[in-house]
Simulated scan of single mutants.
Amino acid sequence: MAKKKRRSRRLPLNERHYAAIELLSDVPSRNHEDIAYILGISRMTLYRWRQREDFDKELHKAIMRKVRARHPRRKTRWELDTPAQVERFFVVSGWL
């Protein structure tokens, strides 16, 4: 009889995840090593978190919230779908 594979259940995001999201969404951002040190985790843990779909969605929301807060009346023509595109937007606009 073959053994059934267990499906691992991922825990929901916690306070450390949200702290990492806030630090990553700052522009200009600190590097991953500094953020990991501040949070008391390893750099590889932070990279693994970045691979999570739910973490990435929350990071995107935080970045967009900060972009809108900076210019609430201005609508951008840019499609800002990834953190890299948001950072590029700030560089081209001259805010960095």
Rank of each mutant, 00 (worst) to 15 (best):
R43S: 09
L13T: 03
F90K: 05
F90T: 00
L96E: 04
L59Y: 02
L46E: 00
L59F: 06
W95G: 10
K5N: 03
A19Q: 14
R30S: 13
K57Q: 12
I63Q: 07
F89M: 15
M1D: 13
A19C: 08
R70S: 03
E22L: 08
L59N: 09
R6A: 00
V86Q: 03
Y47V: 05
L59R: 06
R52W: 13
M64A: 01
K61G: 04
L96Y: 10
V67L: 09
S42M: 02
H71S: 07
P28K: 06
W95S: 15
S8I: 14
G94H: 02
R52P: 10
R52K: 15
T45Q: 12
K5H: 10
H71M: 08
A69Y: 00
E22M: 09
W78S: 12
A69N: 13
K4P: 01
A36M: 05
P83F: 05
D54M: 09
A19W: 02
F89C: 09
N14Y: 07
I63T: 00
R73I: 10
R74K: 01
R88K: 15
R68M: 03
V67P: 00
R9V: 08
R10H: 05
P12Q: 09
L23H: 08
N31P: 06
R52D: 14
H17E: 06
S8C: 06
S29K: 03
Q85P: 01
A36N: 05
I38K: 08
N14P: 02
R52Y: 14
A36I: 03
L59K: 00
R48Q: 15
E87N: 07
K57E: 13
P12N: 09
K66E: 12
K5C: 08
V27S: 09
S93K: 09
Q51Y: 12
H60Q: 12
R52T: 12
Q51T: 14
M44Q: 08
K5M: 04
W95F: 15
Q51R: 15
E53Q: 11
R6K: 06
S25D: 03
